[in-house]
């Protein structure tokens, strides 16, 4: 059976996902995603033009709390797991 999605689409989605895939992984992913999409495509057979979407099952909207200042995470706590600490900042390497 031909794959549902092209290898070029897999590469594009991998870039959007910030995942580096080898060519072997692209092939595997193409096969696996195509297999899954064949199943989930089932939702296409329903005409849902009159049905509103549900984002989550609790009827809550625009939950607000008082805008009161409170202490944030202390610097040392925030930095303690940093893979590359540069002074009081996170090191990030070259941007481009």
């Amino acid at each position: 059976m031909p794959p549902v999605i092209e290898a070029s689409v897999v590469r594009h989605v991998a870039r959007l996902s910030r995942l580096a895939l080898s060519e072997d992984e692209v092939t595997t992913m193409q096969r696996e995603l195509s297999g899954i999409l064949e199943h989930v495509d089932l939702v296409q057979e329903l005409d849902l033009s009159e049905v509103p979407p549900t984002t989550h099952a609790v009827p809550l909207q625009n939950v607000l709390r008082p805008d009161e200042p409170r202490p944030g995470l202390p610097l040392e706590e925030a930095m303690r797991s940093a893979p590359d600490r540069q002074g009081d900042s996170f090191g990030v390497g070259r941007l481009g």
Binding site: S17, R18, L19, A20, A78, S81, A82, P83, D84, F90, V92, G93, R94, L95, G96
Partner: peptide, 21 residues
């Protein structure tokens, strides 16, 4: 960037993200 695994010797930031993940 802020915690967890980070790849070694990436060439630039995009490569850092992609290889780390």
């Amino acid at each position: 960037i802020r915690y967890g695994h980070r790849t070694a010797d990436a060439h630039d930031l995009l490569e850092t993200y992609e290889r780390t993940r």
